[in-house]
Every structure is written in C-alpha cells, then in structure tokens.
C-alpha cells in the first residue's frame, strides 16, 4: 500500500459510551465508573475509586450538591454493593445529603444490618423528613441499634419525639440500655427550644 491509497471507510461499530471523554483516545475500553465502583470497595482493598468520588463530592460547588447527591444515591443502588461501599457512600451523604436522600436512606435505617451506615448519613440532615424517618425506625430496631438511634434523635433535638421517647423510657419491656438512652435523649431535647 502506498501513501496515496485512500483509506478504507471505517466499519460501522457499536458506539462505546463512557463517562470519561478521554476514552475516545484509548482502545482499552471504557473507564470504570467510579460512582459505581465505589460501592464495591472492600475493607483492605483498593479504595482509589472511593478516593475519586470523595474528591468530587468535596469539591462540588454548593450550587451543584443536588446533582452530587443524586449520583451518590444512584451509587447506593449498585448491584453487589458491599458493606464497606455502603459505609463510604453514607459518609459522603453525611456531607451533602438533603431531604431528597431520606426516602432512600429510611429503609436502610430500619434494617439492623444497614442501620449504622444509614444513621451516619441521616443524622446531619435537618428537616421533618429525616425526623420522621428516625421516629419510624424506633418501631423496628431493638437493643444497641435502638439505643444508638435514640441517641441520634437526642442529638438532633427533635422535640416532637418526646412522647415516643417517654414511652420507651418507662417501658419495662425495653432493655436498660434502651431506656437509659431514652432518658438521656429526653434530657438533651429539653435543652432545645420547641
């Protein structure tokens, strides 16, 4: 073939869609999506995808946190999500989560297996939506998890929770650690203005 031979037209191939524009210069396939891969991290494993997401979350301009929040919520739904991945995503949501996160986090808060991570994300989210999620979880959690939940309600200062917490404080069927948590939460809430 000499230099003047016109190139054959490129065969039509299936277009590769990648989140990374730089991928069009590479034949190595699309870059993994860090928003999905951060949900799959393992304790002791590679956390570079989580680091990438963390950097994006932290440096999101205030006006765009809603979009970042949506990406994190999408990450939560990644198939095969790991325990470490859940914890990481919830740590990120603790920084940028809003009322829009509550419907996704509320079921996780009620599940003893996921409640710790969900509470980490939900505790700093202000507003009645999150308050309601905490109150609803009082009916499903038990033991230590319930005590931790009550502690978060106390820290949030939800005055509307007083009657529920008073009932728990006085319930002979509740373990001492739960009743004690309710007592302290009520004392804490008393320092907040209604």
């Amino acid at each position: 073939m000499n230099a003047e031979t016109p190139a054959a037209p490129a065969a039509k191939s299936k277009k590769v869609v990648s989140a990374n524009p730089a991928d069009r210069y590479s034949n190595a396939g699309p870059s993994p999506d860090p928003w999905a891969r951060c949900a799959l991290i393992e304790y002791g494993g590679d956390r570079s995808y989580a680091w990438t997401v963390r950097e994006r979350v932290i440096h999101t301009p205030a006006a765009e946190t809603g979009r970042t929040e949506q990406q994190l919520l999408k990450s939560l739904a990644t198939p095969g999500r790991t325990e470490a991945g859940l914890a990481f995503i919830c740590q990120m949501l603790a920084m940028v989560g809003s009322a829009k996160s509550v419907p996704v986090l509320a079921p996780l808060l009620q599940d003893a297996k996921t409640t710790e991570a969900a509470r980490y994300a939900l505790q700093p989210i202000t507003g009645p939506e999150a308050d309601a999620a905490f109150l609803a979880a009082l009916g499903t959690l038990t033991g230590n998890a319930k005590a931790g939940l009550i502690g978060s309600i106390g820290v949030r200062g939800d005055t509307a929770a007083k009657s529920a917490l008073t009932a728990i404080k006085d319930a002979a069927t509740e373990p001492a650690i739960v009743r004690g948590a309710a007592t302290r939460a009520l004392a804490r809430i008393a320092t907040f203005k209604a």
Partner: peptide
C-alpha cells in the same frame, strides 16, 4: 458553609451517643 458545619460532629456507632 453547610458542609463544613456538618464536619463539626458525626454520628456515633450504636449504642454510643453524645446525648
């Protein structure tokens, strides 16, 4: 700065709490 204010505290693992 809402994000900075959120970093003034954090939720504690059960059953521990500041309350």
């Amino acid at each position: 700065d809402d994000a900075a204010n959120r970093l003034r505290t954090r939720a504690m693992r059960s059953p521990w709490s500041l309350a």
